[in-house]
Design a protein around this nucleic acid. Structure first.
Lengths: 163, 163
DNA sequence: TATTGTTATACTCTATAACTATA
DNA sequence: TATAGTTATAGAGTATAACAATA
């Protein structure tokens, strides 16, 4: 029996490069996630926004754009979509009427829970070849690279209790 | 002294997800690589093509497109760029005059060497926080995921000597 | 009629710039 | 004058479809 050696495979020197694998896998993970969210009528950006709002309560749009590195004009459309479905609310800040304060509604919190389930499913399929320990190891390695490159990846070590 | 806890960090649940990190890091690695190649007047696609040609000699355009999963029409422009600079040659296959046989020129081989140096530099900076063992571990984990998803990632285990 | 390479077209995504209302 | 949010526009990148030559 002839072992299945696909004649069309990537150049060995590319496959040998962690960066190449990182780029390709990162791209396909993103693509697949996007597709799943689209089937649900949303985008992965919507999930990120809800997750952010769930952690630090009241946020202005510029704070959201800043934290997620979204373009402010892109964010407008995303929030429009969420607001139309009653998942977030926008209210003007009385102290500075230029600012919109964005908050999660109960329906938004519920949607977030369903997003979490979806993401867990996608990730679980993607990481199927790895066991628990290996997934943790992968996460650790990636996180160290990420933190080095962008401080926003730092886990906000248990916020110091306010005054 | 106040520890630098950036007020604008990603939601913890995202940072805790290997998939999220994979997506973000993969994206930024790709972006940075593209930028470096552009500064050199090329694109990362050019590198992949040269690397592929260097391994298996004669290839038709459709074989290249197939192996690298590039769109055939996209490949035309890429090869035009390489041919103009004398890095590859296109010759019609006498046996089937629809086919273009693409081969690497000596200049192309030289350019490939310089690409390799560039890629090594980029990757080295990107993986700076990890030591040799850790980089190998990362590569191993990523490769296992990649192979599971796409057979083209399989390392073409030392080709069985022809008949 | 199917396939290889090529060219032309359309579409999506993103990035930029201009506009408003507040400050 | 500067900033928050919004809207409109333009550009890059990608995917699709039509096309000519050969089989």
């Amino acid at each position: 029996m002839n072992a299945e050696i696909p004649t069309n495979c990537f150049p060995a020197e590319l496959v040998a490069s962690p960066g190449f694998l990182l780029g390709r896998l990162g791209m396909s993970f993103k693509t697949e996630t996007m597709e799943e969210f689209e089937q649900a009528g949303f985008s992965g950006y919507h999930y990120s926004i809800l997750a952010l709002l769930d952690e630090g309560s009241r946020k202005t749009q510029s704070a959201i754009a800043d934290a997620l590195k979204y373009d402010p004009s892109q964010l407008v459309a995303l929030l429009d979509g969420l607001e139309e479905r009653g998942l977030v609310e926008r209210r003007r800040d009385p102290d500075d009427r230029r600012r919109q304060m964005v908050t999660l509604t109960p329906a938004g919190r519920q949607q977030l829970a369903s997003f979490r389930k979806l993401v867990r499913k996608i990730e679980d399929e993607f990481l199927a070849p790895l066991d628990e320990d290996e997934r943790a190891a992968l996460h650790d390695l990636l996180l160290r690279i990420a933190v080095e490159r962008d401080a926003r990846f730092a886990i906000p070590a248990a916020a110091p209790s306010a005054s």
